[in-house]
Structure formats: C-alpha cells, structure tokens
Write a protein that binds this DNA or RNA. Structure first.
Ligand code: FES
Ligand code: FES
Lengths: 143, 143
DNA sequence: TTCAATTCCTACCAATCAACTAGGATATTA
DNA sequence: TAATATCCTAGTTGATTGGTAGGAATTGAA
C-alpha cells in the first residue's frame, strides 16, 4: 500500500472538514464518529495539519477544527505530503535528500522520476473541492 | 518511499540481466558485484522472479540467470508487482482484495483509483529495453 | 465561578515489516 | 571430486505502524 492509515485517515478527516466548511468549528470527536475512527489517533494526525496551516483550531468548549482556506485551495497532495512525507518512489528522487552520487549514469532513476511525476500530477491537480463534489454526486444519486 | 529495496534492487538486477541478454547465463555474484549489493539478499529477490517465469536459471558451475524473454517484452510493472506486491494506494483499490463495503459512496476511493491508474500506466509502458537504451545513452555520452 | 468540553502534548506499547545474515542441501561441469 | 552455482528455510535486528494512556491548558456556558 502506498498510503498508510496516516494519509488515508487524514484525507477522510479533511474531507469531513471540507463538507463542514463555512459552518464553524467541528470537534475532532464528531469527525471520528462520522468516520468510525479512533479520536485519540486522529488527534495525532491533525496536529501536523494544523502546524502546516491547513486547519485552524479553537480550543475549549464549542471549539474544534476548521479548514483555514477554501476547499478549492487545498490540494490532496498538500495533505498527503504532510502526513506521509514525500511520495517519491526512491530516495534519490525525493526532494530533501542529498542527490545520489550515481545520478548521472543511473537508468533506474529516470524511471523513478517518471513515476514521481505522474503521482505528483494527480495529487496536485485534485483539491478538496473536487472530493466534495464527488461526494455529493455519489451520495445524492438516490435522493 | 514507494519502492522498498526489494523493488529497487530487483530492477537493478533485471537491468543487469537485460544488459547481458543474449550472452548466456550470468551468476548472481556477478550481478551483486556490479551493483555493489549483497548477493545473499539478491538471492531472495530473484527467487520469485524465477518462479514467475521472468528469468531462467541454470544450476551448477558456469550456471547463472538469464531473462526468459526479450527485454522489450518485460515491463517494469511486472518486476515491481512481483517484488513489491500491488502498488495500489489503499486496500480498497488493490486487485486481490475483497471490495470495500463503502465503495459505492466513498469519495476517497475515486482519488485512489486515479493515483493507481497513473502509476500503472507508467510502469506498464516502460520495458527493460527502454531502460537499457537509457543506460547506453547515459553512459556512452563521454566515449 | 465552576464545570464540561475541547485542544494540545508526551510518552509508551505491541505487532508487523524491512533488510539482511547464516547454514546447508542440491545440481552441474571441468 | 572439487569448485561453482542455484535453491531453500530460518533466524535476527531495527524501524515503522497503528495505536493507547494520561494529563495539562484553554474556553464557553450554566
Ligand atoms: S540510485 Fe540514486 S541515481 Fe540511481
Ligand atoms: S475506504 Fe474502501 S471504498 Fe472508501
């Protein structure tokens, strides 16, 4: 699996917050209940999202979390990279890493670069708004 | 990292065998030396490749491994899937798995499907022959 | 003012996985 | 028969995953 629970749960959380966007703060417990996930675990995942500025938090009673900007401005790539780290196929293609010494003559690196590029294109093209739209399309069909 | 050493070393091995294609069997120790990898570890990785029919083996002295078909007929996706398992982003998109019960109304699944599709397109388009060509282009430049 | 709701933070834990290593049986050829 | 290889099974070690536990700090409402 390319995505661990960190990325997958994180995406679900952020989708839930996107669905709630404009309706005020949403407590983590509500998110956890809606998605049937452990709230103490989600707590750990939302912390880096807050520190990266994707969500704002309000402490105390009636507090909770909300997106810091419009769903259309948050790419799923932002979320995934915060929670999973880079999705590079191998170290020598990942951004922060020191470049591999064999980079000049390594044929596998070209492959990794192509894989990385195609993944990045997908996750940086799709925003939370797209997922909200998908959600409504999927769930309002029967109504 | 999307690819573990299994996939990455496996690709290097197969590239080495592709470079040696048509020249008879190549012992694993030679591959390991050329790529500076542990031969006892590579032994474990080539076993599933042989069982899947991608490489043929010859036992005993002067034995070794060779590709079972032309480099142009072996997709890197074949190699990666054998050594890494599916590259699906999440369980509910992976082929063998029982389909997730929420599949009908799950918006994250659509995202996973798009990621999976783009990865599969890349790794099933590129063959060992392409990597061999890249290798020669990269390494004969200075000669 | 006090209490309940809530975020925030650190530490711990068990199970699994990743990346090897070790040791030996079996087959082939010079 | 010795040297060279593949083949097979079983460890081992460290990191990662997917959590739990416990409590401090903050805030709104009764
Ligand atoms: S392994 Fe890093 S460039 Fe090839
Ligand atoms: S989690 Fe499986 S379909 Fe959404």
């Amino acid at each position: 699996m390319i995505l661990s629970t960190r990325g997958r749960y994180g995406l679900k959380m952020m989708l839930e917050l996107a669905l709630n966007y404009g309706k005020g703060a949403m407590p983590l417990k509500d998110i956890a209940n809606k998605q049937s996930l452990s709230d103490t675990y989600l707590e750990q995942l939302i912390s880096p999202l807050r520190k990266s500025g994707l969500v704002n938090s309000t402490r105390g009673a009636q507090g909770g979390y909300e997106l810091s900007k419009q769903p259309s401005e948050i790419k799923v790539g932002d979320i995934i990279r915060i929670l999973e780290g880079s999705l590079a196929p191998a170290e020598c293609v990942s951004e922060g890493e020191t470049e591999c010494s064999k980079a000049d003559y390594c044929a596998t690196r070209l492959l990794y670069e192509k894989i990385a590029e195609s993944i990045n294109t997908v996750i940086d093209t799709i925003t939370l708004k797209d997922m909200v739209d998908d959600y409504h399309r999927l769930n309002n069909k029967t109504k």
